[in-house]
């Protein structure tokens, strides 16, 4: 597999079980560069587990993960992040006592390799600070950037999740229900922000709201019982009778 033509992210035979509970089985995926994938499936289908496996938060029992053709299966999570694989969390996982600007600056400094400097002043890291600020402005968090994270409204905290991931300059970004817990009328704002991201970033997002999925995804992967049940364009998935049966038809989404 040559580096240049390799998919942005791919898995081969990925498998994982907790005791007798199989959460991932024979997952073969290949995400081309710049494509926007939605990962859907009923509760307990193993969607978050798959993201945890890809990012190294969980170790698979079998199988491999490739980032741009490089086998990253054995790498620690932070090493995967440094190679361009970032994620956000379904339940906010932020730095409550840091201001939004501090939090994003922290992530930028980690990426730039200046986070170990204990004898330089943070305020003199001008490029890192300006970059962090620019990311916050892009996500329309400019007027919140001096507020401690814990005081930010929930929807803004969801955007800060994305800002932290962007600060790592990802090639592939995995979004675990980016609008989870946000009122319907605000969730559009979050997905607008996601849609505005650079086309160079390969996206995979988990989402339950089918309107959002069909609007923002160019491809859909359906996961059922830890296995890839179907994948294809939104039109193909919508027309697939098996998908309608196990997923769309059976339960009301939301």
């Amino acid at each position: 597999m040559s580096e240049a033509n390799a998919p942005a992210l791919s898995t081969r035979g990925l498998a994982m079980s907790f005791g007798s509970l199989v959460v991932a089985k024979d997952i073969d995926l290949s995400l081309p560069k710049g494509v926007r994938y939605a990962l859907i499936g009923p509760n307990g289908a193993g969607k978050t587990t798959l993201i945890n496996l890809m990012t190294g938060m969980l170790k698979p029992n079998a199988g491999q993960i490739f980032l741009g053709g490089e086998d990253i299966t054995a790498l620690e999570p932070q090493e995967r992040v440094r190679r361009g694989l970032a994620r956000t969390f379904q339940i906010n996982s932020l730095f409550p006592g840091l201001t939004a600007l501090e939090a994003v600056t922290l992530a930028v400094c980690e990426r730039r390799g200046s986070s170990g400097e204990f004898w330089s002043k943070l305020s003199s890291q001008s490029e890192a600070i300006d970059e962090a600020h620019e990311i916050l402005l892009r996500l329309r968090l400019g007027d919140s950037c001096y507020q401690p994270t814990r005081e930010l409204p929930y929807g803004r905290q969801r955007l800060l999740e994305i800002a932290l991931a962007l600060a790592t300059r990802p090639k592939v970004l995995l979004l675990d229900e980016p609008a989870a817990g946000v009122p319907q009328e605000e969730s559009g704002d979050i997905f607008e922000a996601v849609a505005d991201l650079s086309q160079d970033i390969t996206l995979l997002f988990i989402e339950h709201d089918m309107h959002v999925v069909f609007r923002f995804a160019s491809h859909i992967i359906v996961l059922v019982g830890g296995m890839v049940f179907a994948q294809g364009s939104p039109a193909e998935i919508a027309a697939d009778p098996r998908v309608r049966e196990v997923y769309l038809g059976k339960r009301k989404h939301g």
Binding site: T55, G56, M57, E76, P77, Q78, V81, R82, A86, R87, F89, S93, L94, F95, L106, A107, E110, R111, S115, L164, A165, A167, T168
Partner: peptide
């Protein structure tokens, strides 16, 4: 737990 996810 978030630190590894920002590459730290």
């Amino acid at each position: 737990t978030r630190m590894p996810a920002v590459g730290a």
